[in-house]
Design a protein around this nucleic acid. Sequence first.
DNA 1: AAAAAAAGAATGAACATTCATTTTTACATA
DNA 2: TATGTAAAAATGAATGTTCATTCTTTTTTT
Lengths: 194, 194
Amino acid sequence: MAKLQKSIDKRNALIKATIELVNNNGFHATPMSKIAKMANVSPATIYLYFENKQDLVNKTYVEVKAEYTKYAFATYDETMPVEAGFKLIWNRIADFKLKECENAMFLAQCDNTPMIDEQSRQEGIKHLQPLLDLWERGRQEGIIKPLSDYLLYAYAINPLSFLMIIQKRGVFTLDKAHLEEAYQSAWSSIKVCQ
Amino acid sequence: MAKLQKSIDKRNALIKATIELVNNNGFHATPMSKIAKMANVSPATIYLYFENKQDLVNKTYVEVKAEYTKYAFATYDETMPVEAGFKLIWNRIADFKLKECENAMFLAQCDNTPMIDEQSRQEGIKHLQPLLDLWERGRQEGIIKPLSDYLLYAYAINPLSFLMIIQKRGVFTLDKAHLEEAYQSAWSSIKVCQ
DNA sequence: AAAAAAAGAATGAACATTCATTTTTACATA
DNA sequence: TATGTAAAAATGAATGTTCATTCTTTTTTT
């Protein structure tokens, strides 16, 4: 137990260091040596936990993505009405992006670059199913516009990533008041007007 | 004249190669030697046109961004009604992202990573002013929701970047029919409901 | 005391950049 | 128009560094 515990701590430290360094410097400017230093570990130790640099980044991505979706759906259950369910999930996602800003930034960077292997990318998408199911239900009930999942995601969810990134750059603050407005925009863009 | 012409061709070839290689492999996996090869040029020649790799990427970003905004506003004039103006600009942006997909992908990658110097990023933002002015007019006329420019951009424009990226990955096609739907979502999310 | 984990130094490859040389251009002169 | 030549442009090879990864040794665990 103690031994395993210790290993997991090191592994977590490595993943955390990877996220922080890649966020601030980009993949191309984060050498393994820096990751090791930040995690208080020898460079050689990284290779006890990960095959190589690419594997480290892939695994980091998949794990952070899993955390993200777990958080997003934690309080949702599929018997909720569509609008309430969407609002709940949307706000959980917004919460995550605000509170776990580093993690969310890392995901955004991975999602917009060829940093990650295609396979890991696919892996990361899987966890999103509950949201897609909710949308399907919403379309069937005539509450949500009959758009493809991609369009719905583009207009309802993805804008949060943009807002988080520019917030991180310091020109804009995404506070609670903004969030309510943002939610209204998100919902307006996908709901059926009555 | 002939001499200058030749130089500009080389420079353009270098910028084009940079875009293509960074799009496909990411900054971290595009060595100067590959850029040179793709541009049919010696590695040393790059340094006649750009200070170093970072300068090459910065300049590429700023130039592509300028092209993008030039295209976006080419047929717009500020006497148009707000809604028509927005629709026009939105469609020009969509056009650009479809037709100049490589360029748009490159911008998206730069906008979501620390690849680019902050200074070049600022430089790139400047050109967006006509859209911000249009929004201000729209807010004053009570046509556009009283949201900050950042929120408006997040919901009305940025989703196109997301759609373009996943289209490039081959799971989704952003055709003319989708575009009309996307425009409706964009407009719904920022217009004042009457 | 054997096995596992970790460390730091070593290795070799890849790379950005520079250097020494060659090629091309622009243009003056015949 | 042809030719010589100085400047500019371009090149391929060389340089020195950085970095991912591996090797050997040490430390920790059981």
